[in-house]
Amino acid sequence: MLSDLDLIFKVQDGDESAFSELMRRHYRGVVNYIYKFTHSVESSEDLAQEVFIRVYRSIDRYRPEAKFTTWLYKIATNVSITAVRYSNREKNVSLDEMEESNQQTGDEKIFSASDFTFRREISALIFEALETLPEKEKIAIVLCKYEEMPYIEVAEVIGCSVGAVKAYVYRGRMKLIEKLKPHLRKDKAHGL
């Protein structure tokens, strides 16, 4: 089986099927990585397409000093973070609008909006807990936990030292334990 690097060289020579093979290898991982930031299947797929478009457009400039997956996840991180920031800005605007309309119509609706945060679905709980973390802690946790990336690669993706990655994971994990403590206790009782 050809390595990622061999495939990249083939793509650089104009072999499009080699790029399809690269996508077959990494597309699922990238979609799921983005999903941890967006929690939306549809937008995760759209953004993953965007990531691979960017990779395809700039593959001629790729130099094998960095591992392909490091480069790929770096692009995926940038795309995800940009999308999340944009959607948060939109969310803030709509929340502001919602609050304005609540003030006009009465306060009852504010309570129904806060109920939204108490969803029972586990993925939603984890997503919400991750959302509260600072960006770098969140990226470090997702890459370490879900992509099973070693610290050294995570450091390259984030652009920091290995020590800093350890600190991000440590701090992020402590915060997640605090946020999800009730569910951890409950899960422990159920044998987790």
């Binding site: 597309y27 999903y35 941890k36 586990i122 993925s123 984890i126 334990i177 999800l180």
Partner: peptide
């Protein structure tokens, strides 16, 4: 136990299929 439990809980967030 909490740290281990957190990692296990996070595994409950299943991958999606593209």
């Amino acid at each position: 136990e909490q740290s281990k439990g957190l990692w296990k809980l996070m595994e409950e967030w299943r991958d999606i299929e593209p």
